[in-house]
Design a protein around this nucleic acid. Structure first.
Length: 263
DNA sequence: ACTAATGTTGTAGG
DNA sequence: GCCTACAACATTAG
């Protein structure tokens, strides 16, 4: 799915096109897209003006005159401006200026949820990894016995890091994915804190990673996948030392790392 | 046919 | 509360 850099890229395109517009008409296609929320019916937000768009981890938060729409793209969700409908179109937003925003989602893990205020579950997510201070990051690590890779995927620890950027950040910091989070030295924790911010900024600059499904709101692919050092590179030589990149399963997720460069 | 895929959530056990 | 494993959700691609 879209992780933080991909969601950021999507919002960059959507914000100028949606802010100030009125949702003239909306269609939610099928029960899945709004599952779990009795509040989310199209008539709850039709006729409302969009005040602002913001990213909250991997969530796109659309502030409306009354209430908020929280969009999570799941694994294969896309938000597309002025694109033709497909068999995977799960929602359609018609704007008052004639523009159309589609929500396409092959696997249907994505969600659109309307509520009067930012849901508690969203508010409870951890700090934004591009802005968290080292002091806060360090405090969050203390006492954690979890291995660092699965902890980075925990959205209540930091919001927005997914499987690609967890692996890439750990490589950049030279830290083994199985390292116990609470036992990282201050120097290694500082390297990781810095690597996370750098890898995310770099990925945003390259408009995200397009592995299979991801495209931005204009249908364009990102290019950061060309700069991945470990993710999806199992058995290929490490760009730093030449040793083959390993792939293991950690926390039920594929995990890629260099056994020589990451301790 | 089998496996894995950018994710989250609920359950169960330690 | 924390941590881990597993299943479920649904579809495609190799």
């Amino acid at each position: 799915m879209p992780e933080l850099p991909e969601v950021e890229t999507i919002i960059q395109a959507l914000a100028p096109r949606l802010t100030g517009r009125v949702i003239a008409h909306a269609e939610l296609l099928g029960a899945r897209v709004s599952r779990g929320s009795t509040e989310t019916r199209a008539d709850r937000f039709t006729g409302m003006r969009v005040l602002a768009l913001e990213r909250w981890g991997k969530n796109i938060v659309v502030q409306l005159e009354a209430g908020v729409l929280v969009v999570h793209l799941g694994m294969t969700g896309k938000l597309l401006l002025d694109a033709p409908r497909t068999p995977y179109t799960r929602a359609v937003f018609h704007l008052d200026d004639g523009g159309v925003l589609l929500f396409d989602d092959i696997r249907q893990f994505g969600r659109i949820e309307w509520s009067t205020a930012l849901p508690a579950r969203i508010q409870a997510l951890g700090p934004d990894p591009t802005r968290v201070t080292f002091e806060e990051f360090w405090q969050q690590l203390q006492g954690r016995s979890a291995r660092i890779k699965p902890l980075l995927l925990n959205q209540n620890f930091l919001r927005g890091i997914g499987n690609i950027y967890a692996d890439e950040a750990l490589f950049r910091a030279g830290i083994h994915p199985k390292a116990v989070a609470g036992r990282l030295s201050p120097a290694r924790a500082a390297r990781l804190h810095e690597a996370i911010a750098e890898i995310l900024q770099l990925a945003i600059a390259h408009r995200g990673s397009s592995i299979s499904d991801y495209v931005d709101a204009d249908g364009a692919r990102g290019s950061f996948q060309e700069l991945h050092h470990v993710y999806g590179r199992q058995a290929k030589p490490c760009v730093r030392c030449g040793a083959p990149i390993r792939r293991i399963v950690l926390g039920q997720r594929g995990t890629h790392y260099c056994g020589h460069c990451q301790r």
